[in-house]
């Protein structure tokens, strides 16, 4: 891809982006939805080959952040660089070439409903490669074996449980051997067993294949067991960052409320509105 970069390293820029430790670099990111600011100047670095988690209460735009990293949404201001390239300045062709190196695990799984599991995992391979049928079959079976669903290859997505669907979607996300996987709430709505399986799978993929993992979640306990580094997002800002141990010891009231699961605190229990008493006393129009 970049013969010059490897043959003749440019000494003037020692931090060649392709070799830098940081895979995703977000600077001064602003994003609005209507009048509401979702992100108000966020800086965030995601190191290569690690598991980085973004924690935060629901509705803080964690999924939006993933979509910005995947360039499905464009920021109002600021930059999102992945592997040294500003995604929102790429042409559509470049962006699609870039996306082949990213996988995303959707919260719903987002499997193609009219295809079997086998065909779902084969889908990106068929679209982007011209592999002979036998090799394609072996590759798909290897991916399915990794998530423990080789035996379920002829089932349709509607025949799977939620946990199985998510594992199948994971097999599809790693079909093209991406450098990075974005996980959108991988643990929400899972029973304890499939939660444990997913935690182990994410860890395994990260350790064995060196895939950079970005995980957004509100499940504090599970996330802390596997994340190398955590950002806490609240009120359109990053309110805390550090390793799980550092965050547990943090002083910030918002971080403590979130890590400890306290119902009320800097993040209010009540949705903003007028005073309770005024609301009760007001006559209906």
């Amino acid at each position: 891809m970049r013969p010059h970069a490897t043959l003749k390293p440019d000494l003037a820029t020692p931090s060649d982006p392709t070799h830098s430790e940081t895979l995703v670099r977000i600077r001064d990111l602003h994003f609005r939805r209507g009048q509401r600011a979702i992100f108000d100047g966020i800086d965030l670095d995601i190191p290569r080959g690690r598991i980085t988690a973004i924690l935060g209460p629901s509705g803080t735009g964690k999924t939006t952040l993933l979509r910005l990293i995947g360039a499905q949404l464009a920021p109002a201001a600021g930059t999102v660089e992945v592997d040294g390239r500003d995604l929102h300045r790429l042409s559509l062709v470049e962006l699609y070439a870039h996306r082949k190196r990213m996988g995303m695990l959707f919260q719903s799984g987002a499997l193609l409903t009219d295809l079997t599991l086998f065909e779902n995992v084969a889908f990106p391979l068929r679209e982007h490669t011209r592999l002979p049928a036998s090799m394609l079959r072996s590759l798909v079976l290897m991916k399915l074996e990794m998530v423990g669903l080789r035996g379920a290859r002829d089932l349709y997505p509607r025949e799977l449980s939620g946990g199985m669907a998510r594992r199948a979607a994971l097999a599809r996300a790693i079909a093209l051997d991406p450098m990075m996987i974005l996980y959108d709430e991988p643990f929400s709505g899972q029973d304890p067993i499939s939660m444990g399986i997913l935690v182990r799978l994410i860890k395994q993929l990260n350790d064995a294949l060196g895939i950079t993992s970005v995980l957004v979640s509100h499940d504090v306990a599970e996330t802390c067991t596997i994340a190398d580094y955590i950002y806490v997002l609240s009120g359109a800002k990053i309110v805390g960052a550090g390793t799980p141990e550092e965050l547990r010891a943090a002083d910030s009231p918002t971080v403590r409320q979130f890590m400890g699961g306290l119902p009320d605190g800097p993040v209010p229990f009540h949705f903003p509105g007028k005073a309770y008493l005024d609301d009760l006393l007001e006559l209906p129009a």
Binding site: Q72, Y96, R99, K100, M102, G103, S108, A110, T113, H128
Partner: peptide, 18 residues
């Protein structure tokens, strides 16, 4: 519409399939 609602179109975009 159903493919959109179930994020299948979004998933295709992320798999670099337009």
């Amino acid at each position: 519409g159903f493919m959109k609602a179930t994020e299948q179109l979004s998933a295709m975009e992320m798999m670099a399939v337009d």
